[in-house]
């Protein structure tokens, strides 16, 4: 399984925000680090097909990003997302499951399973507006996994999670990373340094680092601060 990105570029008013990126991703956890404005979210949006690139192509096992088959294999957690105010947690998952093309029966089973996995089973029938920030984030993670994605793109997934929840999330990702291509964008170095098999660091629309990552290395924070100084969020 392989995600191939060729010459991916996004310009806004002639300013390149993502600048001619070419890379391949394989099953495993791929960490994406960078300061604010580096282009991480724009890159992720293009990899998910929600933003049209100015140039370049994205394909998963030869299937183009614009096709239904690509989105069938995709799970995405955006940095910020909303919800319809009348939705409960279960309603939210069932609605997105319908947009992912899952049958009602399968969707109900899968939603119940995921709510249990992210510790929201008790909150399933409560309205999302009553959820804390961490609960909303966990719900977001659950929706990204509804369709057993082969490509999972998560943008700042641990925002709002307490340390215990972050550890739980890292364990979940580590399990998924065996059969799934995971691209995890974060400002929090500790989220990725112990689970990622590959590290990408982005600045001004380009990769300044793209190398396999040895989990025993402890200098990632040092590298990050060296590159971005005190700009971490």
């Amino acid at each position: 399984m392989e995600l191939i990105v060729r010459g991916l570029t996004k310009r806004y008013q002639n300013r390149p925000v993502v600048n001619n990126l070419s890379f391949r991703l394989y099953p495993g956890i791929n960490g994406l680090l960078g300061a604010n404005g580096a282009g991480k979210t724009t890159l992720m949006q293009m990899l998910c097909g929600v933003l049209r690139p100015t140039a370049g192509s994205v394909s998963l096992d030869g299937v183009d990003v614009a096709s239904e088959d690509y989105r069938a294999a995709l799970g995405y957690l955006p940095q910020n997302f909303g919800y319809y105010p009348e939705f409960t947690g279960m309603d939210f998952l069932l609605y997105l499951a319908s947009l992912k093309g899952l049958s009602k029966g399968h969707a109900k089973r899968r939603a119940a399973e995921l709510l249990e996995m992210v510790g929201l089973a008790d909150m399933a029938k409560k309205r999302i507006k009553t959820y804390s920030g961490g609960m909303k984030q966990r719900l977001g993670i659950a929706q990204a996994l509804l369709n057993d994605p082969r490509l999972l793109i998560v943008d700042e997934p641990t925002a709002g999670l307490d340390p215990k929840e972050r550890v739980r999330f890292r364990k979940l990702l580590a399990q998924l990373g065996q059969d799934t291509i995971v691209l995890l964008s974060t400002h929090i170095v500790s989220d990725v340094e112990h689970i990622a098999g590959r590290m990408l660091m982005m600045s001004s629309g380009r990769f300044i680092m793209d190398e396999p990552w040895d989990k025993t290395r402890t200098d990632l924070e040092h590298l990050f601060l060296e590159e971005f100084g005190g700009m971490e969020e």
């Binding site: 949006q45 998910c48 097909g49 929600v50 239904e68 989105r71 069938a72 995709l74 995405y76 955006p78 910020n80 997302f81 909303g82 919800y83 319809y84 105010p85 997105l96 319908s98 947009l99 992912k100 093309g101 929706q143 369709n147």
Partner: peptide
Amino acid sequence: SRSRRHGMDELELACRMPVGAA
């Protein structure tokens, strides 16, 4: 236009089924 008002559009666009059709 509901999904844009409530910030659901990015989630919907990444789903398999064409949102425009929905």
